[in-house]
């Protein structure tokens, strides 16, 4: 492992509940790395261990070469953390908020003054410099919290559900901001439930469930490796007979594992092929005389992957080790 964030065999229990059970991670420098998993999967616990807020029961993690167990203070100097739920101090102006955290890192007055202006511009809060923090909207507070994590110019950012509670516009702005941070050379670990957003944003993901990494790597690589199928919805012109004929036609095509007729007349198929295969299937359908009006994926790649990988059925769910894909 050569990544800037490395975790080996992390285990954390709360009383008798196993929150993280032998988790391994390897995140390369400059990546936007997504942690995906259902509630209780262990995402927050993992991020809190990496942020030195929790000590693992066993295993260790290193950030930029510093161990979270042995050198937590060194880790804190290279790390910016934005927790899932965070608060703001009352009676504090926006610039004072950043000034306080900059003081915590021992940054001198001259650098603080320059840095606060730059950061407020970066997170688009320049005009709010003298506003009291509690007077900011949720989206603005989120951006301010992100700015607080950047006061010491850290190499790694840990963001726990950064988009939760944000309206669509604020989410788009946050996504753009994270891309900008990546272009500045930051490595970003982000956990989220909003899978399509992670898919657009992340260069790699780890799908976590029950405290273990089930799949790890680029979305396309995981998909290829696991041979996870896609769900397509096809709208064929015509009446019920035409729809039924189309369903019957798709059901016997290669790589099609299921074919169902939906109430709105669309045919939904489970397809096990790749992009070439789906293009070929569409061409064959049109060539066979089916009047295909639309042919589209029913869900995003990551959502399908997530559902497949975290499926409760042990037959369909891949083995954690077998699913490992190098980034």
């Amino acid at each position: 492992m050569t990544g800037i964030v490395r975790a080996t065999g992390l285990v954390k229990r709360y009383d008798r509940t196993l929150a993280v059970g032998g988790l391994d991670l390897d995140v390369a420098e400059g990546e936007i790395f997504g942690l995906v998993g259902p509630n209780g999967a262990g995402k927050t616990t993992t991020l809190r261990i990496l942020a030195t807020l929790l000590v693992p029961d066993s295993g260790d993690a290193e950030i930029a070469g510093a161990s979270v167990r042995r050198n937590p203070n060194d880790v804190r100097r290279v790390l910016g953390f934005m927790p899932d739920s965070f608060g703001v101090y009352d009676d504090m102006k926006v610039w004072e908020y950043l000034d306080f955290f900059a003081r915590c890192y021992g940054i001198n007055a001259e650098r603080r003054r320059r840095m606060i202006g730059d950061l407020l511009e970066l997170v688009d809060l320049g005009p709010k410099r003298d506003t009291y923090v509690q007077g900011l909207s949720r989206g603005m507070q989120q951006r301010l919290c992100l700015a607080h994590a950047l006061v010491h110019d850290p190499a790694v950012l840990l963001l726990d559900e950064p988009a939760s509670g944000l309206d669509p516009r604020a989410r788009v702005e946050l996504r753009e901001l994270l891309r900008e941070l990546r272009s500045l050379g930051k490595t970003i670990l982000v956990s989220s439930h909003i899978l399509p957003e992670l898919e657009e944003l992340c260069t790699s993901v780890a799908i976590i469930d029950r405290g273990q990494v089930l799949a790890h790597g680029r979305v396309a690589d995981i998909e290829r490796r696991l041979r996870v199928g896609a769900v397509f919805r096809i709208r064929v012109l015509g009446e019920h007979e035409a729809h039924e004929a189309a369903r019957a036609w798709f059901a016997v095509q290669p790589d099609v594992v299921t074919a169902d007729l939906l109430e709105d007349g669309q045919v939904e198929i489970g397809f096990h092929g790749d992009d070439d295969g789906s293009a070929q299937l569409l061409a064959t359908a049109v060539g066979a005389g089916l009047r295909v009006a639309t042919f589209s994926r029913a869900a995003s790649d990551l959502e399908e992957l997530f559902l497949q990988v975290t499926a409760p059925d042990p037959v369909t769910a891949p083995h954690p080790v077998a699913a490992e894909v190098p980034a």
Binding site: L53, N73, R77, F81, F86
Partner: peptide, 14 residues
């Protein structure tokens, strides 16, 4: 209560 302690304890101040 204000959930600011985590922000504070992840800084290097002891």
């Amino acid at each position: 209560e204000k959930q600011t302690l985590d922000l504070l304890t992840t800084t290097p101040i002891s």
